[in-house]
Design a protein around this nucleic acid. Structure first.
Lengths: 336, 336
DNA sequence: GCGTTTTACTAAAACGTATTCGTAAATAAA
DNA sequence: TTTATTTACGAATACGTTTTAGTAAAACGC
């Protein structure tokens, strides 16, 4: 479909040059208010729509950002996208979505393809399987990038995260205060700074309270769901922990199923708390205590800082916020 | 960032024309295998990336599709996007996301902005507040559009939906078989064919079983959550139904809260079934019986047909599937 | 052998916009 | 009045690609 009405059409109709039309449409100071009005009016009347490809090509701005995330069927990422979209829409930006499905190669392919100038900037939450970071180092050199939530170390880019260490520490203390003596940890995102901070919070809390710790109390997340289930079941059978901290939502639900299978009562036999943005957490049986990250705000902040970079607005490193998660105590770690 | 390596660079390096380079990159039959290899090799070596803007401008193809949806923090739409993304990625297409937040004006703004040639095709799930359909009629004339799940009547475009009528009919019968005599309906999407089909299934099932029906048993969905809660509460207090069918997930959870507040037992006092793709439905208290739509497949199919149109592949209307939802009986409508 | 087709390439013209540079007229400064 | 400055516009070019139209040379048909 060739464009039916272009700057040329408007120019011819108004007997002015296309340069004038273009400038008028871009609200240039070089053009009189009079002319601007005429152009805008005609543009509206003829339903002129600027051709984005031509505009991008000439101006080297795409008015588009990319969001690369591991998955989307997860409330955290859905909410983050909501936040991103809100900021982007206010600015008239378009949002491209790329799902890595936690696969590092897919992620690399995306980042490489985005080097072509398709977008002005990129928001990334890193795949859990990512170990090689070369593609990110290349990327941040060539295009503005903001990492959010799932971030990596030693990279020259802004990272918007929540208080992973502190919130995990607090959650551990919460379990301890409610009587737990042997707390297991479901460990995920081990390659990422996010995962490392979380487990550090858990470990430090145990240490500060002189509680037993050890590798046998830790289950590593696996991409195979059945294996996760088995591993958790074995942990619970063999170690008989009285508390579990799950560093991701996906590992908390299997705990529920395992307890159902083994006839264990939550919270009497086992208390469970998990990182989660599940809207149904209060309706689970029993309701699930959660560390809930401000997903929407993380998205907003990440997008906000990306636009600051795009606008070349200077800012200090200490402006970058560390957002606060909230610890929501429910029945799975009860009694309150 | 000006492009550092372009077709021009490759052409100069290889001492051939840029036309040859371009054709080689596009695997044109006009170019010898020998030359193609040389070009591809050098392109790889110099990390050439085709400039999308220039390519779009000249070829009038964007390799991009738009997905317009009402919300994203909802498992149905998340899964649908997963399906869409899978198909799009296979084809090397990019996916733009637009969230209407159930607002018709936002929706209109999006559809109008997409007339500029930014995308090759559009997938839409209509906002619940959409009554005026003019912008859609304009849109489908100018660009390939496929509607999915939430569709509208009398429009010349492909619609991929599930078996809304049949599944609601079956769900109603399920309640009846489990002893319900007075079944309420939480009515949403009333402007859309989707909503109309669902309630028709409910009404016909009641009629076929000579059960009471009437407007007093129907609660209309409202954008104000508190009002929904109040309306549902009033319904339950005043009409004392023994069964509820919720045409959307968002209205099922308030039922749970209302029952908690009123001390009603689910399923003994009130049986509940809802359209839903909640992954935690089995873990709710009590577990929620659902009509679960094949969200992922709906996304896949919708994207598949969009690409058929873009490829100008002919197909018969009877190839367009009506996807089957599944009725999952759980404790909220128990006993089984 | 000659005419015809095929092969493999190129020059040049788009695609529609933004921008640089130049300029005539209007206004301000002297 | 003369000069300097500002205002409002236009011509032309560039962005990097795809495509059209054309053409030598090679291959083919008979």
């Amino acid at each position: 479909m060739r464009q039916n009405v272009t700057v040329k059409t408007l120019a011819k109709e108004l007997n002015i040059s296309i340069a004038t039309v273009s400038k008028a449409l871009n609200d240039s100071y070089e053009i009189s208010i009079d002319t601007k009005q005429k152009v805008l009016e005609l543009a509206k009347k003829l339903k002129y729509e600027r051709n984005p490809a031509a505009s991008n090509l000439r101006s080297q701005k795409t008015k588009t950002i990319a969001v690369i995330i591991p998955q989307i069927a997860n409330n955290f990422f859905s909410l983050a996208i909501n936040g991103i979209e809100e900021i982007a829409r206010k600015r008239g930006y378009h949002v491209l979505i790329y799902l890595t499905h936690e696969d590092s190669e897919t992620e690399t392919a995306f980042t490489e393809s985005l080097l072509s100038g398709r977008v002005d900037g990129i928001l990334i939450s890193v795949s859990s399987s990512t170990e090689n970071l070369e593609h990110f180092r290349e990327l941040v050199k060539k295009i503005p990038v903001v990492f959010f939530d799932r971030s990596i170390e030693d990279i020259d880019a802004i990272k918007i995260t929540a208080d992973d260490y502190e919130s995990t520490y607090d959650a551990t203390v919460h379990l301890i205060n409610n009587g737990c003596k042997k707390i297991a940890y479901l460990y995920a995102l081990n390659c990422l700074i996010t995962g490392k901070r979380r487990i550090a919070g858990y470990r430090d809390a145990l240490k500060d309270h002189q509680l037993e710790s050890g590798e046998n109390l830790i289950v590593n997340h696996n991409s195979d769901e059945d294996l996760n289930y088995t591993n958790i079941k074995n942990l619970i059978i063999n170690e008989k922990p009285d508390g579990v901290i799950s560093s991701i939502e996906e590992l908390a639900l299997p705990c529920y199923y395992v307890c159902n299978e083994l006839g264990l009562n939550i919270p009497n036999d086992l208390k469970i708390i998990s990182f989660s943005n599940l809207s149904t957490a209060p309706l689970l049986k029993p309701s699930l205590s959660t560390i809930t990250q401000p997903a929407f705000e993380i998205g907003r902040e990440a997008a906000g800082f990306l636009f600051k970079i795009l606008d070349k607005k200077p800012f200090d490193a200490d402006e970058i916020p560390k957002l606060k998660s909230i610890l929501i105590k429910r029945d799975s770690t009860g009694p309150l």
